[in-house]
């Protein structure tokens, strides 16, 4: 078995163990008898808790984490920058703006409307980035454009808060922006999974381009690979994965940044072979983060996005510090 396959197997095993724990433990402690009942009769009370509350929540955390880890790995490869993540390019912020707009306009009552608005936002951000990157090839310029896009979307979201006549809608937007996988159903899992799998397929097609970009723009352009197409595929994959993640769980930061770093050494830096392990590592991280967030004894349950940001921001600083020393960024 190759080292890459061993790594993927090991993370998958860890995901299974983490998922079992995450389904067994929760706010409501179940007794052994209740567990037995839940397994015997899924429609019983304990069965409902396990199979309709916790299991879809864990599955959502897994798939959202996979999406974030994947899009972080794609963006870091595309921009040749260890500090890139779905937030950096503004895709998360524009998706969040779409969802916030939909909620304030009263679309939350229509099933799927907020999710669609988030996906449309991510698609729009992706299209803008594609247009920009077709004209300007420098990764630094693309990052700056992403920062501008992100700031603008943040300002527009703030404007929505500012002008919103209804404090209830504002609270709803706020709660959604904080990011959570609480109360997600199998329906959420069912629609978000194909989107994430599709984005994974696109990313794997783009992998040779990401690998070649390690040696810089000019080497990639003279390598014979169809770089314009591969770059487009990579951007689409990142936008779709981020959009799907934001649509189902709101804004959850830092998983996309950190997941690729956890496995980069194991694949010896190769941005192509990084994709699958980084995606799985993202899934594992988010299952664990969600478990820790809901096991933390607070009156109000900690929002997953808040928890990952609290843990992730110092990590970001640490990675920046190490990157600056090792790579003279």
């Amino acid at each position: 078995m190759t080292s890459g396959a061993r790594l993927i197997l090991a993370i998958t095993l860890a995901i299974v163990i983490a998922a079992v724990f995450a389904v067994l433990f929760g706010e409501t402690a179940l007794t052994g008898a209740q567990f037995a009942e839940a397994f015997r009769d899924p429609s019983s009370g304990p069965g409902e808790v396990l199979w309709q509350v916790r299991a879809p929540r864990v599955a959502t955390a897994l798939i959202v984490g996979v999406a974030l880890g994947l899009s972080g790995a794609v963006m870091q490869g595309l921009l040749r920058n260890p500090l890139a993540d779905p937030g950096v390019l503004g895709v998360s912020a524009v998706a969040a703006l779409g969802a916030a707009g939909a909620i304030v306009l009263g679309a939350a009552a229509v099933p799927g409307a907020v999710e669609t608005a988030a996906l449309v936002g991510a698609g729009l951000a992706g299209a803008l980035l594609v247009l920009f990157s077709a004209r300007v090839r420098s990764p630094e310029a693309l990052i700056l454009f992403g920062v501008a896009l992100s700031s603008f979307a943040g300002a527009a979201t703030a404007l929505i808060f500012n002008l919103s006549p209804s404090p209830i809608a504002t609270a709803e937007v706020m709660s959604w922006l904080l990011g959570s996988v609480q109360n997600r159903s199998w329906i959420d899992v069912a629609w978000v999974t194909p989107a994430v799998l599709l984005s994974g397929g696109l990313a794997i097609l783009a992998a040779p381009g990401l690998r070649m970009l390690s040696l810089g723009e000019e080497t990639a352009r003279t390598s014979g690979l169809p770089m314009a197409r591969l770059r487009l595929l990579a951007l689409l994959a990142a936008a779709l994965a981020t959009g799907a993640a934001v649509a189902v769980a709101g804004v959850i930061g830092f998983v996309g940044l950190a997941a690729p770093h956890l496995v980069r050494t194991a694949v010896r830096g190769d941005p192509g072979r990084l994709l699958v392990p980084a995606a799985l590592a993202g899934g594992l991280m988010l299952i664990l983060a969600d478990l820790l967030a809901r096991m933390t004894p607070t009156d109000q349950e900690l929002k997953l996005g808040v928890f990952t940001a609290l843990v992730g921001a110092p990590l970001f600083a640490l990675i920046a510090w190490r990157a600056a020393r090792e790579w003279r960024l």
Binding site: L213, S214, G216, R221, T222, G224, R264, G269
Partner: peptide
Amino acid sequence: SPRERAARVAYLPQERRIAWNLP
């Protein structure tokens, strides 16, 4: 095409930065 060109002309840029710790 890019591929035909690459098959006939190899280019080594002056820039030597490598983004990741590849072997």
